[in-house]
Amino acid sequence: MSTTYLWTPPATVSLPVRGQAARLPINRLFFVGRNYHAHAVEMGRPVDKSQERPFYFTKSPSTVVESGATVAYPPGTESYHYEMELVVAIGTAGFRIAPEQAHTHIYGYACGLDMTRRDLQLVARDKGRPWDLGKDVEQSSIASEIVPLPGVVIERGAIALSVNGQVRQQSDVDKLIWNIRELLADLSQFYHLQPGDLIYTGTPEGVGAVLPGDRIEGHVDGVGSIALTVGPAE
């Protein structure tokens, strides 16, 4: 028996996969906060790994935009920031994953941008409120094509971002506070990870604001590149 809906449900959100015609359907988006020491310091919240564990926020899959797009400067902000990230794509379900088994759950990787209404995020943070208005922003989860690297744990590789040709972020994935094995092991204590889950692993230092007309470009060695143009405000 077919189901009848009041209106047409939204299409499945997906990303292209390098070398394949089939696309990767996205299940959930997880983001790791403050996972590079220098970025944690620039945000005024240094991290002591011996005393803390990773923390996460989520965004709706509907916020995903493919690399190369032009997105409108969002409403309600005067400080729209870029954050360049390595993205892990889960390919095999897992719960309470042991760090040494994390590689068996990885399908591949992508480059990502976590675009943020920083002014709204900081107001919410300082008042102890949720970050949703600052982070779960329409068209704010940018992703490149997925690069299939099943079973591969990326432990190092340059990560960088430029705005209008000027380098703003430059670091290496080996500077992650919690590495990919640790992230999958920790996150899977709270969620049954599923194929199509994407984990944005954190951003290096150098985050900053962009304006309409700005062109953002980034890359992660061994994964690929990403690009975004900021359009006029609506």
Rank of each mutant, 00 (worst) to 15 (best):
Y36M: 06
P74Q: 02
L228Y: 07
K49E: 10
S171V: 00
E234L: 13
T8R: 11
H103W: 11
T92M: 08
V123D: 09
T58K: 11
I216D: 08
M43I: 00
R215N: 11
A89N: 04
Q166M: 14
Y80F: 15
I146F: 14
H219L: 08
S60G: 10
K135R: 09
P16M: 10
V88N: 05
E66P: 06
P9Y: 11
Y5E: 04
G44C: 01
V147K: 11
S62Y: 10
A69T: 09
M115G: 02
L29G: 00
K175W: 07
R23C: 01
A158I: 08
A233L: 09
D172G: 00
L133N: 11
E205N: 13
L24H: 06
S14G: 02
R168A: 07
V210F: 09
P150V: 03
D132T: 10
Y73G: 00
Q101A: 14
W131P: 03
V123I: 08
P61N: 03
T70A: 11
V167F: 04
M84L: 13
S171A: 11
L228G: 05
R215P: 02
I180T: 13
A227W: 09
M43V: 00
E217C: 08
E85D: 06
R28Y: 01
S60Y: 07
E217I: 02
H105V: 04
Y200H: 04
P61L: 03
F30Q: 01
T77E: 07
A93L: 03
L149H: 08
T116W: 08
K175M: 08
V153P: 07
E83Q: 07
P16N: 07
L120Y: 07
D221R: 12
A227E: 12
P74G: 02
S225K: 14
K49W: 06
L149S: 03
G213I: 06
V71S: 09
Q101H: 15
L187M: 05
L187E: 00
M84N: 10
R28Q: 13
I97W: 04
R168F: 03
I226A: 03
H192Q: 14
R34L: 15
R18M: 12
R18L: 13
I159R: 07
A89V: 15
V47F: 09
E100N: 13
N164K: 05
A93V: 03
Y109K: 06
Q20F: 10
R125P: 00
E52Q: 14
E234M: 08
T58N: 13
V65S: 01
Y200S: 01
Q101Y: 13
D186L: 00
L211I: 07
T203S: 14
C111T: 04
S225A: 11
S144P: 06
F57A: 01
P10F: 11
E100K: 15
G108W: 06
I159A: 03
P195Y: 12
P99W: 13
S50W: 08
I226M: 01
M115N: 04
Y191H: 13
E42L: 02
S60P: 14
S225W: 05
T4V: 15
I226D: 02
I199H: 10
R23S: 10
P150A: 09
A110L: 09
G68L: 03
G44N: 04
Q121E: 06
R125L: 08
F55Y: 12
S162N: 12
R168I: 00
L187F: 01
S2P: 15
Q166E: 15
